[in-house]
Design a protein around this nucleic acid. Sequence first.
DNA 1: CCTTAGCACTCTTGAACTTTGATTGCCATT
DNA 2: AATGGCAATCAAAGTTCAAGAGTGCTAAGG
Lengths: 329, 329
Amino acid sequence: MLNQRQTEILKEIVEDYIETARPISSNSLCKKMKCSSATIRNEMGFLEENGLIEKTHISSGRIPSEQGYRYYVDNIMKPKEITGDDMLKLQTIFYNNSLMLDDTIIKSMEIISEITNYTAVVLGSASSENKVNKVEVVPLSENRLIAIVITDKGHVEHRNMLLEGRVSSDEIKQTVELINKLIVGTPINEVSSKLEFEVKPIISKYVKQHEVLYNAFYNAFNDFANNSNVVMKGTSHILKQPEFNDIDKIRDIVSKFEGNEMVNSIKEEENGINIYIGSENEFDDNVTIIKTKYEINGNEGTLALIGPKRMEYDRVISLLDYIKKNIER
Amino acid sequence: MLNQRQTEILKEIVEDYIETARPISSNSLCKKMKCSSATIRNEMGFLEENGLIEKTHISSGRIPSEQGYRYYVDNIMKPKEITGDDMLKLQTIFYNNSLMLDDTIIKSMEIISEITNYTAVVLGSASSENKVNKVEVVPLSENRLIAIVITDKGHVEHRNMLLEGRVSSDEIKQTVELINKLIVGTPINEVSSKLEFEVKPIISKYVKQHEVLYNAFYNAFNDFANNSNVVMKGTSHILKQPEFNDIDKIRDIVSKFEGNEMVNSIKEEENGINIYIGSENEFDDNVTIIKTKYEINGNEGTLALIGPKRMEYDRVISLLDYIKKNIER
DNA sequence: CCTTAGCACTCTTGAACTTTGATTGCCATT
DNA sequence: AATGGCAATCAAAGTTCAAGAGTGCTAAGG
């Protein structure tokens, strides 16, 4: 445990570094506290011994280590009140009734990304918990159909089907009815096996073009189970951070953004606001990921922000919390 | 017009520069041709006077100018046969029958992006030409509905609706029937006015919760007209190109990729394969955009590649052409 | 008249070196 | 326990230098 002065020094170092991205010297701290730089250097030595701060080279000022950020977040930091400016920007979104809910969420995260220069991620609900609500088929022309699958939480997935030869609309109706009878209410991740072992045997008996129909539905359901419905906003904003003044780091993170590793590293499930600093997250050692789950009408999702470890934790926590509460309202 | 030797020199300069990204000296050309470096320097002077090549500084070798690339593409270059390697990679996609058409297109463009290190863009059909085929409403719970709109070309758009208070399912049916009656067959970009001036007056008379229903449909149709259905693959690949060894250029292009300026700069409509070199495109002076339209069953779309001006034109043209023909088959 | 060899001139690149300024660690003193 | 003083360390930025790659021009040669 740190004494009061040590705590204050760590706090200053973290907050100063968050603001300036430069190592903090004992001299600069000396001006803000009532003791000499030598005293501060002694305390810094202690903090360094305990792994809370680091040097960039032997005679440099100090920067927070990952553990330092962690200690700061857990024991020192307090959420920061949202400024009137930020509040105003967000409210223009929340009080715009013409926006649909999903758009509101995305827009508000986009704004947060803009005002913070971090990258925002909105992860749609984990669809494996959704259940099939309805299956529809709409004919487009003689041999083209669209299959539409709807879940109880309001997700919609669709597929084009191209039929070779002619299929009577009766056969189509039959198939759809059968699927509706057997599949509705099934959790989406159990559908494929149910399709294969319950639906397939039956339709292959009664329906001539069963294979085309079966495949189309099979694909639609499969995609459904895998699609994570990710929206990213402000990929380019995080590149403005000075930690990305390095070409290779930029290339690296941009290509990681393109892959879907991020989805996996965000997926873990905990309540409240979770913070993963540097190597605490699976995504990239250079960043902090902060995320929270939301739930509206039984429909779950995740909001996340990706920024440098040198993130304005106190501000971001408040912002995320504010958004979460507003969309859940 | 250039004489034979000048043509050969320009060809060498362009192709060499495409390969190495370094200025080409008279000496290096001299080895590949049967004349001295001095002669080549004279010819280079001529080419430079005509704006086809440039120097990076007063005593540097030459690089192609935009006009030089243009001349090369128009008059010198011949499409290059696709290598067995590239062909193989693409065929694993085309002969994978389990993939849906859209996925095939995207996957194949993704592969092209990978083997060329350019960025691929697939632009869905210009939906303003689509006509409404059907409108559906599916109830989720007492006060939640999903509105689904389907066009004749098989696009599907949907919206969640939250009803305040109770709406009889009769009213919903009525509205949907009315919309179907009045709107089906209307081109998507004319729908909003038709909704406002023909549908709204009628439902506001007969339907109590008309506003919620009307808004939901209005939004769905609006999105439809604006959504361009863009898929980008390999945003990070182009960053490997040496022209993006500059941090500011990277930041610039990544943020341009995020915006939708690109969609606009790709939208122009011409047949065949179109090449926009540097300032010929609206997107970014540092890149070349090469694109082509495809059409399947009346459903149009655009394939595009974005690379440095120093692009392997001969290879890319063949690849695009190959993909286009394969998906249209 | 076209081609070539020769040469002076220009500019980039990279390495080596210097200077400046910031900052620390340690030690003796208060 | 806190402080002042001082040598030591290092990054960053600037300077200089030499090497090398290229060009443009001119005059001579086929």
